[in-house]
Design a protein around this nucleic acid. Structure first.
Lengths: 378, 378
DNA sequence: CGCAGTCATGACAGCGCAGTCATACGGGAC
DNA sequence: GTCCCGTATGACTGCGCTGTCATGACTGCG
């Protein structure tokens, strides 16, 4: 384990002492410069930076972590899916973390991976992260809701803070109130009731949306049709759409995300039902294509980026000022984007041929000729 | 900096020596057990593991990294977008890395961030990763193509290996041949030529697709209509669609990704053109909703997961056996998914009213009428 | 029986930093 | 002039692990 000098392969990476020697200062002073500590004269700082540049010096973060007990990194537990929501959150988290001077370590938990979150958290702790973000966890436990208990600060996104242990923080708008607003939009249009195509109920986000839908209907004393459950995919939305189409009495559906809404609309369309003339559909998330599908989708936009930033602000505060009060989260703004997939219900006098609703904003909502061959399943 | 015993906050985390003491062995033996080294008796192993469990011992990976010179982690440079391709690759990379025993550190480069990749790589090197994955880099440099030069192994995904320096490896099917196959599918259907809606040309992936389209047309001596350039978004596809609709002589379009294809179809539909009767559209990626939009999209599926796994295999080999030959990549399979957005052209005798093409059934890879170009297994 | 080889374990040093403390210098306040 | 405090720097040490080497115990074989 001797440092090989110049010969053989690349020369050993320069260390702080090497920089110190070249700059004519002590190793400790180099450390001071690189940590932007106080009490370093401008002259010395310049010499050190110059020497570092000359040698191509890079700090060894493992050594720093060992000596300081902090890694300046944040671990993220996220689901191994390319779904728009989790992916957007991850991006927002990375950016916010970097802005705060933290590196990111990522562990995925695959759905169906029992004890996935706990295992992922364990592996992050082993890596010595200073804080942990649990993004959109799913509840795989049999014994009801689990709760992590770790010593580092935890931020939970898309689930109750208690999921992350007693001292965890959370951020984001309650999905429940958003779901409620989406449902109310349909009721306000005059629909007698609203069907719900729910997400997988092991997801907290899916439960919240279901709850919001229930709340909206209850509040107006409307009856709650049976709930369909999908898996967030357009394919599952399509399957649900076929069921709903055969049910026959459906005029409005609130889908728990846009992908399912798109599959749903496809199935309805194939069954000869027109959206929104016969059935109104509201999605959730406002994924980028939602404005361009046929018909353009009315949906609840989620402020993923704002949520990630707000959450990270809280997490970093918990890391750096453990004693300060956990400043209450500023709820980011949310927005129901009304496009062309929702309209007032049409009296079903004529079997399947309602009056066209007044043309709505941008989308000349052409109903495509029904009966295009069903798409490949999955 | 004394270790505080039990009182005040949580007790200090147990170290290997603590475990060793409890198990009645030396600290080095604990290290051996946790590294699964040879020459540890079963009895000792059990005692050590028991003691570790009892104390809740977790290895300190910073110390391990410092002592061993390896972090057992891989850094990923990826673009800060929720696009399906990059997101899917990231997931595949994480999974493959974990399977190989590596943790993942992620740095995003925002588009428009000059020198973004180089800066991101620098920050990863500082974190001491054992290898680096550069996923779908974009070329922000003014001076032509850049090339990293780092000491750790590099895997480049979605760009020429040379982008990652002289010894970098790469994996994945050449996007060029895929794009060529997509274009040929349209030509085989009988279209005289094919328009191209390209991705942003700073992306290598976008350039490759453009190149493949060019190659397909050149090979058959067809004229190359002017290229439209989008930014991968459905919105940009929509804008391009409006232009194409007004051009009037378009019968087939190859869009560089599915989102743009969806926006494109929307614009064409609004302009009164029918897809595929008047205009055929092929996308690229096969994002999950593509099968459920109207019409279901013919598209080139990309085997993201296979590419990530194959790439990581190569990277891990380069890390662990630097001398072994960089085994040539096994090109993963690719697949043109024919759905309902493509059809033979219809003679434009009557202004805008073609005969409906024979109904195409459910769409999984049907051999389309004319000599179907083989799905380019590169 | 003796010796080499394999297996099992421990002692010790050092990875490259940051923390702590000591030191030295300089400029007011008195 | 002296004291004190703010500034600037260095010496030394230790973070918790792994690498190397030394040391026994045990095996098998001539």
């Amino acid at each position: 384990m001797t440092r090989v000098g110049g010969q053989g392969g690349s020369p050993a990476a320069p260390r702080a002492v090497d920089v110190a020697r070249l700059a004519g200062v002590s190793q400790k002073t180099v450390s001071r410069v690189f940590n932007a500590e106080r009490y370093v004269s401008d002259d010395v700082r310049r010499r050190v930076l110059g020497a570092a540049e000359e040698l191509g010096y890079r700090m060894n973060s493992a050594a720093r972590a060992l000596a300081s007990g902090r890694t300046r990194s944040i671990g993220v537990v996220t689901l191994g899916t390319a779904l728009y929501g989790p992916a957007s959150l991850l991006i927002g988290i990375e950016r916010a973390a970097r802005d705060a001077g933290y590196a990111l370590r990522v562990v995925n938990t695959l759905e169906g991976d029992r004890g996935g979150v706990a295992g992922a958290v364990e592996s992050l702790l082993e890596q010595g992260v200073d804080g942990i973000v649990v993004s959109e966890p799913i509840d795989e436990s049999d014994e009801g809701s689990v709760s992590l208990s770790v010593d580092v600060p935890v931020l939970v996104l898309g689930a109750p803070a208690t999921f992350g242990g007693p001292r965890a923080v959370t951020a984001g708008v309650g999905a429940e109130s958003l779901a409620r607003a989406a449902t109310e939009h349909l009721l306000d249009l005059g629909h007698v009731t609203v069907h719900h195509l729910a997400g997988p109920q092991r997801w907290f986000a899916a439960r919240d949306r279901l709850g919001g839908w229930r709340a909206a209907l209850s509040a107006r004393g409307r009856l709650q049709p049976p709930v369909l459950e999908g898996d967030w995919s357009a394919a599952s939305g399509y399957a649900a759409g076929r069921e709903l189409a055969s049910a026959g009495d459906v005029t409005a559906v609130f889908a728990a995300n846009d992908d399912m809404a798109i599959g749903l609309i496809r199935a309805l369309t194939e069954a000869g039902l027109r959206v929104p003339d016969d059935v109104s559909v509201v999605g959730f998330d406002d994924i980028p294509v939602s404005a361009y599908v046929t018909p353009p989708l009315t949906t609840m936009r989620q402020p993923f980026d704002a949520v990630a930033h707000e959450g990270l602000r809280l997490l970093v505060q918990a890391i750096e000022k453990p004693d300060a009060e956990p400043a209450p989260a500023n709820d980011p703004p949310v927005e129901l984007v009304v496009r062309a997939s929702t309209a007032p219900p049409v009296a079903r006098t004529t079997p399947a041929r309602g009056r066209r609703s007044a043309s709505r904003s941008n989308g000349s909502a052409h109903a495509p000729p029904a009966g295009n061959g069903p798409p490949a399943t999955d």
